[in-house]
Simulated assay, not measured.
Amino acid sequence: MDRQQLSAIAHLDHPIAAPVSPANLDRLLRRAALPEGARVLDLGCGEAEWSLRALELVPSATADGVDISPHALASAGRGAAARGLSGRLSLHLTPAGEFSAPEPYDLVLCLGATHAFGDLGDTLNAVAGFVRPGGLALVGEAFWERPPTPELTETIGDYSDLPGTVDTAESKGWLTVYAHTSTLPEWDDYEWSWTGTLNRWATDHPGPDGDQALALAREHRDLWLRGYRGVLGFVSLLLRRV
């Protein structure tokens, strides 16, 4: 099994592919105050839960979801069909950095997928090309709640602290109009779902695939519980182009 397929399995019980609760996802999208007929772009959409909820909140809106995982997009398609939203969600199997669109968007989403462009600054430069004048971006990025060990930085990445993350976003020509900093309970729910869903799937699928899923769940849980729990944060920034 490839990593994309394992990731799709891990997110089955938590399709919001970030440590954000459904209530806070709703709060962020409502703050965006999307107009009638809004166009939404979801870069690195995964299961497209953010886009699907935006379409439910604004019945005249349409959305494009972009991802490199066929497994995640298949899940997004099933979710759209189950919620009667298939006609308003277009899914694109392509790298986020290679996607192009003929018209700008009212809201561009990129939650936990800034690596697709390089880093947060690169992401915001790219997103600027998709947002209409006066439009918004909702970008989710990790940051260090407290100083990590050198080993953790080497394993996970070289992030900034929260003030530095906001400074980076605003240095690229954006203003923060709202934000949500994920809580420890949100992180725990996300991580227990991620690892637990893989474990349950593995017990239902004994054999090489199940063993691979178990190994990944154990590796991930160990890194979380013994490494970044309470150290790594996540912020969802609602940004407006200056």
Rank of each mutant, 00 (worst) to 15 (best):
A202G: 02
L152G: 07
N199G: 09
T197F: 09
D188G: 05
L136A: 04
W174Y: 15
G140Y: 01
W201T: 05
E191L: 11
G173S: 07
G135K: 13
A142Y: 04
W194V: 11
P147W: 12
T168I: 15
T181L: 06
W192G: 00
V139N: 09
D188C: 08
D188K: 13
T197Y: 08
T195S: 13
L136V: 11
V177T: 14
V177A: 07
W201P: 05
T197I: 09
D189F: 11
D188T: 14
L138R: 05
D167W: 08
K172S: 08
E186R: 05
T165K: 10
E145W: 00
Y178K: 03
G157T: 07
E145C: 12
Y159M: 02
T165Y: 06
T176N: 05
P147K: 11
W194R: 07
G135N: 10
T153W: 02
R146W: 00
E145P: 01
R200A: 15
L152R: 02
A137Q: 11
T195Q: 04
T153F: 03
W194C: 10
R146Y: 02
Y178W: 10
G173A: 03
D161R: 07
V139C: 09
G164D: 14
D189C: 13
D158C: 01
G140V: 00
S160C: 05
T168H: 06
L198C: 06
W174K: 11
W201Q: 11
G157I: 10
N199W: 12
S193D: 08
N199I: 12
